[in-house]
Design a protein around this nucleic acid. Structure first.
Lengths: 209, 209
DNA sequence: TCATTCGATGCACGTCGTGCATCTATGCAC
DNA sequence: GTGCATAGATGCACGACGTGCATCGAATGA
């Protein structure tokens, strides 16, 4: 998707990158991220140990790379949503598009998420990947609503939208058990509810003691 | 705050912990987190290298420890807010209380945040610390609004509230320059605006092309 | 074809993080 | 106060991580 008709060099690079990522996820799924060594990963991907660091700066980054790519795709998709859609609507639609595309690619995206979710050591990396897109999304939102320089809305909206997506996705994954991929329909429903909550206002009165 | 009249053992432990944390922050502020070695930190805190790992599992965790404590305090404070306050109101008040207490302790909390903000390698750790409080906050919210088991509101609200706080704090820190602590009044104002935005509903129409 | 460039690799080194054994100060019972 | 049990501090060894540097070979373009 980022590489169409490039030279052999570029094609080889993206192939290697994918090989490393897949190897990392496969091994992590089998043995647990902590127990997998870089040596194993590089052997599986058939590259030298040193080469690994030409692509990723850590094991964790490699495992999370797929998800990070999806986040980036989400932001890109948001950018091209028609102006007729409100911000939250556009975010919603963008999420659906990425979701469809990812599920079309097979279950790899999902299994990667399952691995990530099960491993505490990946949480920081995943959150960092998400945060990395936050500023990009904020910028896109600022353009879309034509916000003033000092308007806090874009950044706030970006952060909250991504947080909402994360929670929704997380709750959905929670329903997954033993490699059984839960219904995509459920995830759509979750997104729907989350977005509704956001647009309706988040506050609630406290219940009496 | 977590240790009142405990035995000498406990007191020494908390003192050591604080010494490590302070040493880590001080050195990180001077040389940059990446360039500081554990050896330096342990020398500064006057402990053995091995002992460090009895308290923290990494340099980064030590630096972020202070902020992590404030997050925990925030959640604790929220728990004890009166039921007469709505969820967002209670969150707001809790934030103000923690803010007051932290600023009363001097500028240490702020300088720590400044260090953290300037160092990309600390972002994952900080986000992880924040995420760690998310479930605790979600639970507190669930109690407060007496939510049903399958109600997504508590987790969503917790995630979004923390995201909102993070962004607000971040924007405020951005105005800080060269060790000059920006006005706390400004931070209060930022919180006010953020919470208003959240309760009012986050959506916005897109501007025409 | 030839020179250039860029990525892959090997090597060396410093740092990190942990398991294990040991030593010491603390807490406790008497 | 004495002595025991325990928890925390320390030392040691080791495997893994991450990076700078030099080299080699394949891909590119003139």
């Amino acid at each position: 998707m980022e590489n169409e008709a490039a030279g052999r060099r570029e094609r080889k690079k993206t192939a290697t990158r994918a090989a490393i990522r897949d190897a990392a996820i496969r091994l992590a799924l089998r043995d647990g991220v902590e127990r997998v060594t870089l040596e194993q990963i590089t052997a599986e991907a058939d590259i030298a140990l040193r080469t690994f660091f030409n692509y990723f700066s850590s094991k964790e980054e490699a495992v999370v790379a797929g998800a990070a790519g999806d986040f980036r795709a989400f932001v890109a998709e948001f950018r091209v949503r028609p102006r007729s859609e409100s911000v939250l609507r556009a975010l919603h639609e963008a999420a659906l598009v990425v979701l469809d595309r990812a599920s079309g690619d097979g279950q790899d995206h999902i299994t990667a998420l399952v691995v990530i979710r099960g491993e505490r050591s990946l949480v920081p990396q995943l959150l960092a990947a998400l945060a990395a897109q936050e500023s990009a999304l904020a910028e896109a939102i600022a353009e879309r609503v034509d916000a003033a320089e000092d308007d806090g809305y874009p950044r706030l909206c970006a952060a909250i939208a991504l947080a909402g997506l994360r929670v929704t996705l997380d709750q959905w994954l929670e329903t997954a058990r033993e490699g059984v991929v839960p219904s995509l329909r459920d995830l759509r429903g979750g997104l729907e509810r989350t977005l509704t909550e956001l647009s309706g206002g988040l506050d609630r009165p406290s219940a009496p003691e």
